[in-house]
Design a protein around this nucleic acid. Structure first.
Lengths: 204, 204
DNA sequence: GTGTACCGATACGCCGACGTATCGTACGCT
DNA sequence: AGCGTACGATACGTCGGCGTATCGGTACAC
């Protein structure tokens, strides 16, 4: 056969599944999700794009929703949790910078899981725990820090809407304008809507 | 009219398709869309729930996406276009009242069409022209009227985000809190975020 | 060197949905 | 009264995806 020398990637896939290999599966799942939606994601497709056999997939995960749920759980972006610039406005500016960069991928992913999430309990929990909660939790923590620092009052009526606003606009722009909500757009939104509503000065 | 006996519905459906009957098809399509998503919407299902045969469906519409597109085009709720209270704040309060009532149906519908819309050109146009454009156009017209009346400056930076904010929050709440964005929620959002960002006084 | 566990390929059964075709018949018009 | 049109029922071919099963072969441990 072929001389399987240094490239462990292309030719021989006979070794046990390493963590890196596992991540390749997950990446393929997420990519196919974004491109074609949940229903058009097929086990055959994942197998083909990762050059494994269906047997391998079904050995590791029982069913298609479980594979997808597992893939979602690797999405845990803890990036937002690390942000702490010392001011609420500064934190949120960092948030929109990150969100704008990941706008396309996250938006498509959410869109793809739209209704599938309503049918499968495990899928719903995976999406919430792995994607929604971490990001939204981080934002709400920023707001709480802002309250503690006295930047905004604890019962500011706009406080409850910060995360919904950001997530909402992120998903709304593609529908309204046909373009992703990139960082400049999100920044304009933050400075001219979110921060003013909170009583904080926006960069004009 | 065909004043058959009392039960024109259950037994014999042999008459030609009246406009009312046609609307029954569309309603069934939209309902199944909202309940199960686009991919799980089946011609068999529509036929069964409307007690017609598949032949009839395929005689009227060539394919499944065309049936769905036709159903979408009957959604044209021009209700928002009729709103004109004399002030921007008043107009928007009417908008959230309507939107809150239709929240569940509209949100689910958008969610259901998520990725299908990316695959089929006709479907995409139908959704835009029948659902998105009318509502968003009405809101933007309200903003323009507000500018003409001098309520807000023409270049107010928050003006471009009014429709995106409302649509976004409408779709975001179910994801974040697991509940629909009803009228009270939308009203709070309007008074504490949208109006303040525009420099208008919100009802506290 | 021997063994075992795991991988890849592939074939299979099953099901459900699309879209077509056929046929009998009720409707509604003239 | 008669006739054509469109409807309802249903069967059919096709396709594609899920999940299972079988089998040969290879990597890695011992």
């Amino acid at each position: 056969m072929t001389s399987q020398s240094a490239d462990a990637v292309s030719s021989s896939r006979r070794s046990k599944i390493t963590p890196e290999r596992e991540q390749e599966f997950y990446d393929a799942v997420l990519q196919q999700l974004r491109e074609n939606g949940y229903d058009s994601l097929t086990m055959e497709g994942v197998a083909a794009s990762t050059r494994c056999s269906k047997s391998t997939l079904y050995r590791q995960w029982k069913t298609k929703p479980q594979l997808v749920a597992a893939a979602l759980r690797t999405c845990s972006r803890t990036s937002l949790a690390d942000i702490d610039t010392g001011s609420l406005a500064g934190d949120l500016r960092e948030v929109v910078r990150h969100a704008g960069e990941r706008s396309y991928k996250d938006t498509r992913l959410m869109q793809a899981l739209g209704h599938a999430v309503l049918q499968d309990e495990e899928l719903r929990r995976a999406l919430r725990e792995a994607v929604v909660e971490p990001e939204i939790g981080a934002i709400e923590e920023m707001v709480r820090r802002g309250v503690r620092r006295g930047e905004i009052p604890a019962d500011h009526p706009a406080a409850e809407f910060v995360s919904a606003q950001l997530l909402g606009v992120l998903r709304a722009r593609p529908l309204l304008e046909g373009r992703d909500a990139d960082t400049p757009y999100l920044t304009r939104f933050l400075e001219s809507c979110v921060l003013p509503a909170l009583g904080l000065p926006g960069n004009t």
